[in-house]
């Protein structure tokens, strides 16, 4: 009989937000078609580490399990990605799991991505349609533009682009690529366009668009293939024009 195949994991763990991190190894029995999450579930079912000692189960976050919610992002073998679509058969062993370093760790592999949602609020990434009466239908969007905008709307605030960006770190207040691209999405919408200048003004604030250093790691890393650097450059053009309007004055907006 062939020896039973095992999968080796080296997981960076942290018991609470303030404690020091440490590494723990795990060996779990191999099954076909496993992803990182089903392996983590196996550890949860039987929390015994590589030395055969009983330990606490590894904590992680997950949601949809089909790479649309962004919750299960972690650094797998050095690259940030979703653990649901990280197939064990395609990974080099031992598989190294770490929490994304850009975000505060809650526990083990679970991080707090609040800063991304705060950034979306900061740049007004929504379309204001509330009023005291029914405003009626908005302007129609050309189908071709809708298809284009759909690509930008795929952002799931997973945090991978922030993790990959050298300018998003503890020394800078840069909000990162994801919320920037959302401004382009909402500015492209026929109704959202009506508040275009407000979003651009927000982008020109501290930690906004100008903090981008064009390393372009974001567009290489985005699991949804969102053209983040194209969005950033387009917004650079928009804010150039907006800053001239703000400075010299304009007969509209």
């Amino acid at each position: 009989m062939a020896e039973e195949k095992v999968i080796k994991f080296i997981i960076k763990r942290q018991d609470n937000p303030d404690s020091a991190s440490y590494e723990e190894t795990f060996e779990i029995p191999y099954r076909t078609n496993m992803n990182v999450i089903s392996a983590l579930m196996e550890i949860r079912r039987n929390p015994v580490n590589g030395q055969g000692e009983k330990t606490t189960p590894v904590t992680w976050e997950m949601g949809c399990l089909e790479e649309v919610c962004g919750a299960c992002s972690m650094v797998i073998n050095g690259k940030p990605r979703q653990s649901c679509t990280a197939l064990v058969d395609k990974l080099e062993q031992p598989i190294r799991l770490e929490p994304m370093a850009t975000f505060p760790v809650v526990r083990d592999l679970q991080v707090d991505r609040s800063r991304m949602f705060d950034a979306l609020k900061k740049v007004k990434a929504w379309i204001p349609i509330d009023g005291t009466y029914d405003l009626g239908p908005g302007p129609r969007m050309p189908e071709k533009k809708r298809q284009w905008a759909y690509e930008l709307s795929k952002c799931m605030t997973c945090g991978v682009c922030l993790e990959a960006c050298p300018n998003v770190n503890d020394k800078s207040d840069f909000i990162g690529p994801a919320p920037l691209s959302q401004v382009r999405l909402f500015n492209a919408h026929p109704t959202g366009e009506m508040n275009k200048s407000e979003r651009l003004d927000a982008l020109m604030g501290d930690g906004g668009l100008a903090s981008c250093g064009n390393s372009q790691n974001c567009v290489q890393s985005c699991p949804k293939g969102i053209p983040l650097t194209t969005s950033i450059a387009a917004l650079n053009r928009d804010t150039s024009l907006q800053s001239f309007r703000n400075f010299f004055g304009s007969d509209y907006q």
Binding site: G78, K79, A164, P166, N167, N169, K171, S172, S211, G213, N214, S215, Q216, N217, Q220, S221
Partner: peptide, 21 residues
Amino acid sequence: YITFQARNNVSRYGYLRNWMF
């Protein structure tokens, strides 16, 4: 000031533009 705000990561992300950065 800009230089010392970055945490360079070319060892993990060895793309051309990151090297240029």
